[in-house]
């Protein structure tokens, strides 16, 4: 085994390792998302967030525009405060945009869907979304159907 072969094969090992890391970064994880800058953060209050998690997607018409960056409970408003980071590319969302928490599929994860309103002013960093719709909790829906059926 000559020194040259050894050096070449070690070079191949390192290249393969770095290529694998590159794949894990670009193809497997969401690093590409970070490249578009941090974007801007807006907040919204929900009566119930259901199973929403940090890092859940934020979409407009099903297209992903950002993600949930923080969730905490606001003890003064008795509501959940959700912060979402929206990519700087999507800086055209009107101030009266509505945020709803939906579920992808029957048991899928929950995400925030934004529905643009009609105002001229747009959402900027630190804005608050006033129109929100909480997550639908299955038990509540079933309970409502049962009471409806009982009154009929």
């Amino acid at each position: 085994m000559t020194t040259r072969t050894i050096e070449i094969s070690v070079g191949i090992l390192v290249a393969l390792g770095l290529a694998a890391l590159f794949m894990l970064a670009m193809q497997v994880s969401n690093l590409t998302e970070y490249r578009n800058g941090d974007g801007y953060t807006v907040s919204a209050y929900f009566g119930n967030i259901g199973g929403l998690k940090v890092r859940a997607p934020v979409t407009v018409s099903g297209v992903r525009v950002g993600r949930v960056s923080a969730i905490r409970y606001d003890p003064e408003r008795y509501q959940a405060r959700v912060e979402m980071t929206i990519s700087a590319l999507h800086d055209y969302l009107p101030a009266d945009t509505q945020a709803s928490i939906y579920t992808a599929g029957l048991l899928g994860e929950q995400y925030i869907a934004l529905e643009p309103g009609g105002e001229d002013e747009v959402l900027v960093d630190g804005s608050e979304i006033y129109f929100t719709q909480s997550a639908i909790v299955l038990e509540q829906v079933i309970g409502r159907i049962v009471t409806n059926m009982a009154t009929q």
């Binding site: 193809q27 994880s29 969401n30 690093l31 997607p57």
Partner: peptide
């Protein structure tokens, strides 16, 4: 692939693995 990218965070998952 899209589900993978949506759920695997670079800093939280890949970096911690490294």
């Amino acid at each position: 692939w899209s589900q993978m990218q949506a759920n695997v965070d670079f800093y939280e998952d890949v970096m911690n693995g490294i």
